[in-house]
């Protein structure tokens, strides 16, 4: 007690000092602020309010741009013949919206075998709003965070870890993806005019979302099927594929033996026949010199 009294006394000695008021004020503010932040539920409430606003904004966009085919509540629409015009969006998740709208696939020009990517019709904020609205219809995969898909993490790895990650990515790619997307990520044909698009132009986020949601004829590669870190390794492999130098020269479209055969005939045989014509056309003067070998 004596000790306490003594220190209180020491503190008390400064109570009329020039900075005392300021210190007390600051202490008071910090305490109040911390206590408020610790106890008040105001943060979540605000976020919920923001989200509700976003969903409402998304709903309005949805009613204008999407509801014709997907229904006003995203329940899907059948045409007069009973065919599905637009599928139900309940449970497809925000990732699906971000992929379909973010790559320009939605809104669709017309129903068909293939839904090609084209110019993106909505701004990033609008896509976010649409995604929020669709996510509110039912639980589904969310938009991935950057560290989930970005291949930049390779820079933080040692050379060996990096090689191992890219190698795993290639193995997964060759096992699951090349059958449609080609060994080079150049795409391939699907039945009735459909196709698996080339992956060279697709952003890392959209590749991740495609694996997660399985757009079009593509399979869904859920996190149980290909864990998130493996998905990221596939993306890392695809990125290095683009960065790799063309060791063999021009890739000739990276389409395999068909384009190789085309070049063998057009350039190779075409060129050599041209040379044959040239050689045969340049005939010798037989009377030059003595004419003896």
């Amino acid at each position: 007690m004596r000790f306490l009294n003594r220190s209180a006394g020491r503190l008390s000695r400064h109570r009329r000092g020039p900075l005392a008021g300021l210190v007390v004020l600051l202490l008071g503010l910090v305490l109040t602020g911390t206590a408020y932040a610790a106890f008040a539920p105001a943060g979540q409430a605000e976020e919920a309010a923001d989200n509700a606003e976003l969903v409402e904004q998304g709903r309005e966009l949805f009613l204008v741009g999407c509801a014709t085919c997907h229904g006003q509540n995203g329940e899907g629409v059948l045409d007069v013949n009973g065919n599905q015009l637009g599928p139900s969006l309940q449970g497809v998740g925000a990732a699906s919206v971000d992929f379909q709208v973010g790559t320009g696939r939605m809104p669709m020009v017309q129903p068909g075998q293939q839904n090609p990517s084209k110019n993106v019709a909505y701004s990033d904020e609008e896509i976010e709003a649409l995604a929020a609205f669709v996510a509110s219809l039912g639980p589904g995969p969310g938009i991935p965070e950057e560290e989930q898909y970005s291949s930049d993490y390779l820079d933080s790895l040692s050379a060996e870890e990096r090689d191992a990650a890219i190698n795993r990515g290639q193995q997964i790619f060759l096992t699951n993806c090349t059958a449609c997307h080609n060994f080079n990520g150049r795409g391939g044909a699907m039945p009735r005019g459909g196709y698996a698009p080339g992956l060279r132009e697709t952003s890392e986020k959209h590749i991740y979302e495609a694996m997660l949601t399985g757009p079009g004829q593509m399979d869904v590669f859920s996190d149980g099927n290909i864990p998130p870190e493996n998905k990221r390794e596939v993306i890392a492999f695809l990125t290095t594929l683009e960065e790799e130098p063309q060791q063999g020269g021009f890739s000739l479209g990276g389409l395999g033996p068909v384009s190789e055969g085309l070049f063998a005939w057009l350039l190779g045989i075409g060129g050599l026949v041209g040379f044959a014509v040239w050689i045969a056309a340049h005939t010798t003067r037989t009377q030059k010199g003595k004419g003896q070998a």
């Binding site: 096992t175 090349t178 698996a196 395999g256 033996p257 068909v258 063998a264 005939w265």
Partner: peptide, 15 residues
């Protein structure tokens, strides 16, 4: 044997 790629063709003379 478990893998395959799109565009698996033989060289042109077996095409």
């Amino acid at each position: 044997p478990s893998k395959v790629t799109a565009g698996s063709q033989p060289d042109w003379y077996m095409g």
